Simulated assay, not measured.
Amino acid sequence: MKILDWYILKRYLGTFILMLLLFIPIGITVNLAEKIGKILENEVPFVEVAAYYLDFTIYFANLLFPLFLFLSVIWFTSKLANNTEIIAFLSSGVSYWRFLRPYLIGATIVCIGALVLSMYLAPKASKGFNEFKYEYLKKGKEVQETNDVYRQINESEYIYASNFQPLTKAARNFTLEHFEGNKLKFKISASRLQYDDSLGTYKLTNYDKRIVGEEGDVILHESTLDTVLPFEFDQLTPVNYIAETLNYNELNDFIAQEKKRGSANMNRYMVVAYKRWSLPVSAFILTIIAVAVSSVKRRGGMGVNLALGISLAFIFIFFDKVFGTIAEQSTFSPLLAVWFPNITFGVLAIYLLINAKR
């Protein structure tokens, strides 16, 4: 059986790699055709363009590897079925579960590779990909804002602002409260806050400071005040894609920090963290579905299997995107949203596998 195991395993991994090598250049070509005008307009150096498309390749492979894996398994398994090779395997006394073993070994190899990619390589690629996009392709035209921010910045101080603007380094209706134990000691408020990158200071407009005393409060007022505050502006308003750019250890630390600060984007970060595990695990589920669908010889041949496989693959991706978006923009559980496609298709995999075995 080792010969048959190696035969299927080599086809499994070889077809998957071939699928990546075929589709990634297509993705690069389509992206380049769309972005070439901006690249030439901004006179982007060739070295940076090459680095961008290296990052794009890793980002693209990590994002769509479940689809490539699914199609590659359907492709070569359908060929085995059409050539009656599967019938020969099973007729020799090999059980269907034993026939699945090399597929599961291949899925394990892909899963381990996908984990390394998802945990460490893809975040670094995502950082370069997004930095290039915002520096050369968008040029700061898309101003991202964060509304109603309330955060704990350390053990004794809290801030609030009705609006933060990361690109202009400004905020409106800003307050900072300092506590010692459960007692408020002073409160700073300003109608506008502006951060100066060159000096590392903040300019406060309509500045008020209320110092709480035992015998009465003291109020200080300035029309404008340049001062130092105990936080970095970027730490308060991380851009939406920052979680994607952190490796597994950095992401865990970042999430713990954002929880302490009371970030309004926690669901977004949790979705990214859970997907680091859910996508690699999907390799097993999609492999089993692909084998169950394509191991049966059908009247329509490989075309029917591919059509059915592509439909299932896009339903999986649709579920993954829709439930992830719902969790990011509502109070829906990120854990359930991320794992729902795997749970649903896991049940489908068991059903199809039982029927295929029969």
Rank of each mutant, 00 (worst) to 15 (best):
T201W: 10
L251V: 08
I105K: 11
K209F: 01
S72T: 04
F46H: 01
L352S: 02
I17Y: 02
F70K: 09
R151N: 12
T224P: 10
L336D: 03
L251P: 08
L21H: 03
A337Q: 02
E244V: 00
K275R: 15
F16D: 04
L117D: 00
L20P: 03
I350W: 11
K79M: 10
N42G: 02
A50C: 07
T287R: 09
F231E: 02
M19H: 04
F16N: 05
L167I: 02
L236H: 11
Y269K: 11
R276M: 14
K141C: 00
A356C: 09
G140T: 10
A125K: 04
N154S: 08
Q152I: 10
T57W: 02
V212C: 03
G324N: 05
S294R: 09
S333T: 07
I112E: 08
P334C: 08
A307E: 07
V49Q: 04
K139C: 01
Q144M: 10
L63Y: 13
D234T: 15
G200W: 07
D148P: 00
K187I: 00
W277S: 03
P102Y: 05
K124M: 14
I317V: 06
V149Y: 11
T57E: 01
A125W: 09
L279Y: 14
D234V: 13
N240Q: 13
W277R: 00
Q235N: 15
I109N: 06
L90K: 10
V218K: 14
F23A: 03
N147A: 10
E157Q: 12
N182H: 04
G140F: 07
E131K: 15
F23T: 04
C111V: 12
S333A: 08
